[in-house]
Amino acid sequence: MRRGPQAASGVFLKNPSSPLNLFALRGVYTVKGPFNQSSEETNMRLSLQPAMDRYELSVFRAAYYICKNRQDAEDVCQDTFLAYFDTDRDFESPEHIRAWLLRTAINKAKNVCRAFWRRNRESLDDHAELTAGEDPEGSGLLDAVLRLPVRCRTVMHLFYYEDYSVKETAELLGISENTVKSQLNRGRRLLKEMLREGWNDDES
């Protein structure tokens, strides 16, 4: 009988050196933790392919908002999923996986920005090319957001795009809620200055 992706369900091989682990790469679903544990202790984990299907865009965008460069963001995205494949940690829920992926991507993107060769490189600001011919209002907002300070736009992105609350954003970034609030206020104020009618005074 041919083994389809479903056949790999329920078995996630954590040893990356195992050739059978390609099932875990391509397999559809997830896993429960060690079978000798009680149900309260079971952990779940998405295989790589479904995790990518769900979160690749989010991870790429989070990285892009920090790197401001598509090539770097794609590299970060790939490295993030490689790290996901390599990690031995157990996840409690899909939401936990998403938060872990975003935090990892943000950290990796910051590392890329800190790299010596990148700091000494001319930025091509390729988002103009990225959004050419598309929604001009959205393009203007994107351009404005990318001009915000990096901490500010990271917080803004998690809050406005990923729908994290102030508390969740603070936990994900490892900073205080007050810092998140002040970064949000700063970002809103700067966007209002840049966009005027293109940004409301609401705080939703």
Binding site: L57, C77, H127, E134, G138, L141, Y160, Y161
Partner: peptide, 8 residues
């Protein structure tokens, strides 16, 4: 809407 413009 603006973030949707960012695609790999």
């Amino acid at each position: 809407n603006a973030a949707e413009l960012v695609k790999p």
